[in-house]
Design a protein around this nucleic acid. Structure first.
Length: 470
RNA sequence: GGCCCGUUGGUGAAGCGGUUUAACACAUAUGCCUUUCACGCAUACAUUCAUGGGUUCAAAUCCCGUACGGGUCACCA
């Protein structure tokens, strides 16, 4: 059987890295086995829909270099790929279950349910629907339906015994049937619930491997019961532990910026993000960390997904990103970094800009950083305390700076080479070296104690500006 | 609260009963290199695998309890 996996987000227009990481796993499982990766939109909750969300998801997956074999914008045989457009399908299958005696009509109103819940609360008992509507007579049901009494369809759960869930990561998990509520399959608005839609769609779309967050592990018992009721073959389940935020808490929109788009907009490269994320909760058998997509496909093995949750760590992401930046071709790098570079360069020529950007290539962790790093080339400089302390640490520094100034004024053709020679001459003239030779001029010209190659830096700041800053 | 799952260093993690005096990577610290900073390179960083017991000649690795963390119990997904 051909391996088929699916990414099934709800269209909220927001994708945090935990979701993305699930998509990565789904994609890799499919491609590792030469299978298909599908996109399905789970919009059964009509209140959460956001315009443009589908395009947003396509864009995100495309940036990450995931090829969608079937989805709402490139339909295959199993369409539609948007759940709200499959309403009739769910109803048909829900009715089939009623027919078979595995589900029943329930006419309890939300008010009635609330009251039951209230009563259970008072007795400090957890509430569970008691299945009273499953005992309704045929005539009563007929009559209610004829009178258009609103209804939901509930799944009939076994009251005894246990259901076994087999999972690639967590192994064999036993769930007591007595805790399973007669869950709603079809809501009174005719839409299916998430759980029901999932089972029906996964089966109809030929999904062989279901990869999802660990928070669904308990629910899987209900899924299995549903598959059994239909007489369908169950998929292979791969539940993955959560990704936690840097503070060790659950990721959330509020508490940080762990969204793919935010990272992308800050100048993190999608392949680096993917590479970082895939290693969060999964480790390859070989001792390697930087992987191309092809290498990932070759090396991925769902059996090596870890059971415990892992914490997101920007520092490591930054390291990955820096690796990817360093490995870019210069031309590609320039094209890319210019999207993030916002300083006003109207009065500079292109070579100057390229030169500047290039000397920072091996210094960057993410794109946006270029603006802060190159600030001293565009704005007035401001020394911090550390610099001031250094500048006053030795009286000879004044002489050193004067020497530089004189030399710079005398340079007739301003070039990196000429500047290097000046540095050498100052060194001999005043007999200083190391920090004392470099730091004064570095601080005076850029206001910083670190940066790329000094001669390049001075060259780019420009003769006039340097002299005036001295 | 019931049920389910997890627990190796600041972080990601390897490890699947003996060759582990716990790999590798990020971060951190120090040194080397470049007559500076960074880049790069090198070294250091868990006597110990949440904890208590047990099984075994031998346990991070198997079993049980405890603690802690997380998840789940909707006409949300």
């Amino acid at each position: 059987m051909k391996t088929r996996t699916r990414f099934a987000p709800s269209p909220t227009g927001f994708m945090h890295i935990g979701n993305l990481r699930t998509a990565i796993f789904e994609y890799l499982v499919a491609k590792r086995n030469g299978g298909d990766f599908l996109l399905r939109i789970e919009d059964t909750d009509q209140t959460r829909k956001v315009d443009g969300a589908i395009e947003f998801i396509y864009k995100t997956l495309e940036l990450c270099d995931f090829k969608i074999d079937e989805g709402p914008m490139n339909e295959g045989e199993c369409g539609p790929y948007i759940q709200s457009e499959r309403k009739d399908i769910y109803k048909k299958y829900a009715l089939e279950l009623v027919e078979k005696g595995h589900a029943y009509y329930c006419f309890c109103t939300e008010e009635e349910l609330d009251a039951m819940r209230e009563r259970a609360n008072l007795r400090k008992k957890p509430f569970m629907y008691d299945g009273r509507c499953s005992k309704l007579s045929k005539e009563r049901i007929e009559e209610n339906l004829k009178n258009n009494v609103p209804y939901v369809i509930r799944q009939k759960m076994p009251k005894m015994g246990e259901t076994i869930v087999l999972d690639v990561v967590y192994g064999r998990v036993k769930i007591d049937n007595s805790i399973l509520e007669d869950q709603i399959l079809l809501k009174s608005d005719g839409f299916p619930t998430y759980n029901f839609a999932n089972v029906v769609d996964d089966h109809l779309m030929g999904i062989t491997h279901v990869i999802r967050g660990k928070e669904y592990l308990d629910q899987t018992a209900k899924y299995n019961l549903l598959y059994d009721a239909f007489g369908w073959e169950k998929p292979t389940y791969i539940h993955v532990a959560m990704v936690l935020g840097e503070d060790g808490n659950k990721l959330s929109k509020r508490n940080g910026d762990a969204s793919f788009m935010d990272l992308y907009n800050e100048g993190y490269l999608p392949p680096a993000i993917v590479n970082y994320l895939v290693l969060l909760g999964w480790s390859p058998e070989i001792n390697q960390e930087v992987f191309s997509m092809d290498e990932l496909i070759k090396n991925f093995d769902e059996k090596r997904i870890s059971k415990s949750s892992s914490q997101y760590d920007v520092k490591k992401l930054q390291w990955f990103n820096a690796q990817y930046i360093k490995n870019m071709e210069d031309q590609k790098y320039l094209e890319w970094i210019k999207k993030y570079f916002h300083h006003d360069v109207a009065d500079k020529n292109e070579d100057w800009v390229d030169h500047l950007l290039l000397i920072y290539k091996s210094h960057l962790s993410y794109g946006e950083q270029i603006n802060e790093e190159t600030k001293s080339f565009f704005e007035d400089i401001e020394m911090n305390e550390e610099c001031k302390v250094f500048m006053e640490s030795d009286p000879i520094i004044k002489d050193i700076l004067m020497a530089y100034k004189e030399e710079f004024i005398n340079i007739s053709s301003w070039s990196v080479d000429a500047i290097s020679k000046v540095i050498l001459r100052v060194k001999e003239k005043l007999n200083v070296k190391g920090k004392l030779l470099y730091m004064p001029i570095r601080i005076a010209s850029s206001g910083l104690m670190h940066g790329p190659e000094l001669a390049d830096t001075l060259y780019l700041i420009g003769q006039d500006k340097i002299i005036s800053r001295l």
